[in-house]
Structures are given as C-alpha cells and as structure tokens.
Amino acid sequence: MGKGIVILGSTGCIGRQALAVIDSFRDKFQVVALAAGQNIDLLEEQIRRYHPRLAAVLDEEKGKRLKERVSGLGVKVVVGEAGLLSAATFPEAHLVLAAMVGIKSLPAVLAAIQEGKNIALANKEILVVAGKLVMEKARKYGIQILPVDSEHSAIFQCLNRGGRVKKVIITASGGPFRELPREEMDKVTPEMALAHPNWRMGPKISIDSATLMNKGLEVIEAKHLFDLDYEKIEVLIHPQSVVHAIVTYMDGSSFAHLSYPDMRLPIQYALTWPERWDNPYGPYLDLAALGRLTFEKPDEERFPCLRIAMEAGRQGGTLPAVLNAADEVAVELFLQGRIKFPAIPHLIEEVLGRHQKVEDPSLEDIWEADAWARRQIWALIEG
C-alpha cells in the first residue's frame, strides 16, 4: 500500500495537477480521500479512476446527488464543512494537500494538523489570514508544512544551508501587463488579465498575478512559513519565471532554485519529501537555450496591490484577513465586468483604511474580519 494522500480541492487546477503527478507514481501513492466545492461531475470521474475511500462535497445539495451517482463504488460521500473535516482527518492519510481556493478549508487544515497529518500547502490564503495560529499548531504537534507554491517550495529547498539568512528574494513574472502603459490599464479586460504569459492557473490566482497581489500574499506567507522578518523579504520581477527564489546568507553566498515553470515539480517534491524522485515530465533546464535571465524591481505605482499587501502584512493582526477577503470580492467583481482593473487596489485600500484592527486575533476574530470586509466592499460598490 502506498502513501495515503488526501486532496482538498481535487477538481481545481492544483488538485488536477497533483493527481497527474500521482498517475506517474501509482505504485507509490494511494488516494484515500478527495474533496471538492461543487464540481461533482469531475469529482465523480476522479472517484471512478482513483477509488478513494471517502469523498467530500462542500455544497450539500450537490453532495447528495453525487452520493446517488457513485452508489455501489465503495466510496463514502460526506457533505458540508463536517465532510471536509472528515476528509482532512481520514485515519489512513499520511499527507493532506490543501489546494482549495480561499479560507474555507482552514478549520479542516487545523484539524488535520491536530491529528498528526503533514500538510502540503498550496493555499497561501490560509497562512495569510491565520499564519500565526497555523504555524503554532504545527510546531505544537510536530507537523511539517510543505509549501507547494513554486516560490515557497524554492525557498524551502534553499534554506538550511548553514549560517544566518540575510535576504530571501521571491520572484514574479510581472504578469501580462508588466510593460503596458499606465494609461491603458483602464482598458484591461478579464480575458486579457487571465492570459498569464508563463503559468496556467485558476482565475483568482491569474488575476492576482496580473495585479501583483499574488506576490504580496506570498510575502506574508513566507514570513509565517519560514519565520522571517519582512525586512528580509524582497520581490524582484523576473519575466522568464525560471529562478523561483534566491536565499542569500550573511557570508555573501546566494542559493537560487531554477526550473522551467511547471507546477508539477513543486507538487511532486511536496508529495515525495524528504526524498527527491526522478522527473517523469521533462524537459530539464537548458540554460544555453534560454540565453539570459533578467531581473528588475517591481513598479509599485503601476502595481499598488504589492505595496498594499506588504503593508497589511507588516501591520498584522486582522488586517491580512481583511486584505484577503476584500481582494477576493474585488477580483470577482472585475471578472463579472462590474469594476475596471485599476479599481481592484482602490477598493481594497479603502476597506483596509476603514478596519479597526484586532492585534492578536483568535480564529473567531479572523472569521469576523473576513465577513466584515466582504460586507464593506459590497457597501462601497452599491453606494
């Protein structure tokens, strides 16, 4: 029997790629539980292919329909938040891949940690809004949080080389609008923003990459994941997306992680850690064919979301939860065509400015801040 894997968000972009990785090593892994929000058509296909013991659906009505459709296949279908908890704490699981968008899987991740499951974290929002709570619980129960974001996986692999860390550099492609004249930003459409030049991702993260909010969230995630001061984290634009992170030590040595932009690589490393298995996908990096790698500082006037996110992270408390919730709603409004692209950072900053921060928030404080921010941004739009 292989290593027991649970995938929270199996029908999403990361979840599908994780199953593709598992396909390459079918004798090494066993998919014991899958969870999805509401895409029961794809979840049914995954159940028939991977034969998990448990399947969870957040949408209760769709979960009931799935239960009828997979009757007789030997899979128990559970629904709602309780179902998600059941999947995350499934007894036969060795590793839980948290790949659901947003923070709806936060209680399940905390429960999995308490049950002694290592976490492969592909969901940066969980650490953005509750990084202190999650990392304290992981330390208490001796659990390894394995980053799946390409940048954080790269940092993870470059750390612990001996000596003190001077600086950690997180790279960003710059997205599709790195060279777009500022006066053209008003004309950006959702279709243009979704067309990332290097990565193929879901709609929310694609828009966040276009605004550079994604990079700001990654800075907050890195702070908690690696216990770094914000002053030691730097963002550089690297259009080729080949160098994913650089760690510089106090002796002047720098270690960089390089690979072609392919999310299957950090997913595979999280699934196989502490081992490093052969790459079945290819191709291997060819620096001569690339010719050159370039870096530049981000233009924070063109992309104010980066500055806004980093400032919210520095101030801490419930501000990162407000930041995350306001961004989710603003991105959805843009995708629906209700606001223009430059309105995303303006709305987020307005909501942050109205918030009364809770300095050391509990989980309940975080939920309240999240709900408050969503109400505020809708009030601004409707007003």
Score class of each variant (00 low, 15 high):
Val134Pro: 00
Lys117Gly: 02
Gly116Leu: 05
Leu110His: 10
Gln157Leu: 10
Leu121His: 04
Ile119Asn: 07
Ile155Val: 15
Val148Asp: 13
Asn160Ser: 14
Val129Met: 05
Leu85His: 00
Lys104Thr: 14
Lys137Gly: 05
Leu127Cys: 01
Asn118Gln: 12
Tyr141Val: 09
Arg139Gly: 14
Leu146Val: 12
Leu133Ser: 08
Ser86Lys: 15
Ser153Arg: 12
Ile155Lys: 13
Ala172Val: 07
Gly163Trp: 11
Lys64Ile: 03
Ile155Gly: 07
Tyr141Gly: 04
Lys140Pro: 06
Gly116Cys: 05
Gly83Arg: 00
Lys124His: 04
Val75Thr: 08
Val134Gly: 01
Ala112His: 04
Gly163Ile: 13
Val70Pro: 00
Glu125Phe: 05
Gly162Gln: 12
Leu121Ala: 06
Glu136Val: 08
Asn160His: 15
Asn118Asp: 15
Phe90Tyr: 13
Thr89Val: 07
Ala88His: 00
Leu97Ile: 11
Ala120His: 05
Ala120Pro: 12
Lys104Gly: 15
Thr89Met: 04
Gly72Ile: 00
Val109Phe: 08
Ala82His: 06
Met135Ser: 05
Gly131Trp: 05
Gly142Cys: 09
Lys76Cys: 06
Cys158Gln: 04
Glu136Thr: 11
His152Met: 09
Ile126Asn: 11
Thr171Asp: 03
Met135Tyr: 08
Met135Gly: 08
Leu106Gln: 03
Met100Ala: 13
Ile119His: 07
Lys104Trp: 13
Arg139Ala: 15
Ser153Asn: 15
Gln144His: 15
Gly72Glu: 01
Leu95Thr: 02
Ala108Gly: 10
Pro107Val: 10
Ala98Arg: 04
Ile170Gln: 09
Arg69Ser: 03
Glu115Cys: 15
Arg161Met: 13
Phe90Lys: 02
Ile103Pro: 06
Ser150Phe: 11
Ser71Asn: 10
Gln144Met: 14
Pro107Glu: 09
Gly83Ile: 00
Met100Leu: 12
Ala93Phe: 06
Asn118Lys: 12
Val128Trp: 01
Val129Gly: 00
Val109Trp: 08
Lys124Asp: 02
Lys76Glu: 12
Arg164Cys: 14
Lys124Cys: 04
Leu95Arg: 06
Ile155Arg: 12
Ala99Ile: 05
Ala98Thr: 03
Arg69Met: 02
Met135Lys: 07
Ile119Tyr: 09
Glu151Phe: 12
His94Glu: 15
Val165Ser: 12
Lys124Val: 03
Ile145Arg: 06
Ala172Glu: 03
Ala111Ile: 06
Glu92Gln: 14
His94Gly: 14
Leu73Asn: 02
Gly63Val: 00
Gly80Asp: 01
Lys117Val: 06
Leu106Phe: 04
Lys140Asn: 13
Gly175Gln: 03
Lys167Arg: 15
Val148Ile: 15
Pro147Gln: 12
Ile169Leu: 11
Leu121Lys: 05
Glu115Thr: 14
Lys67Ile: 00
Ala99Arg: 04
Ile113Lys: 11
Ala98Asp: 02
Arg69Lys: 07
Ala112Tyr: 02
Val168Asp: 10
Gln144Glu: 15
Ala122Leu: 08
Leu106His: 08
Glu125Pro: 07
Ile143Thr: 09
Leu159Ile: 14
Arg65Ala: 04
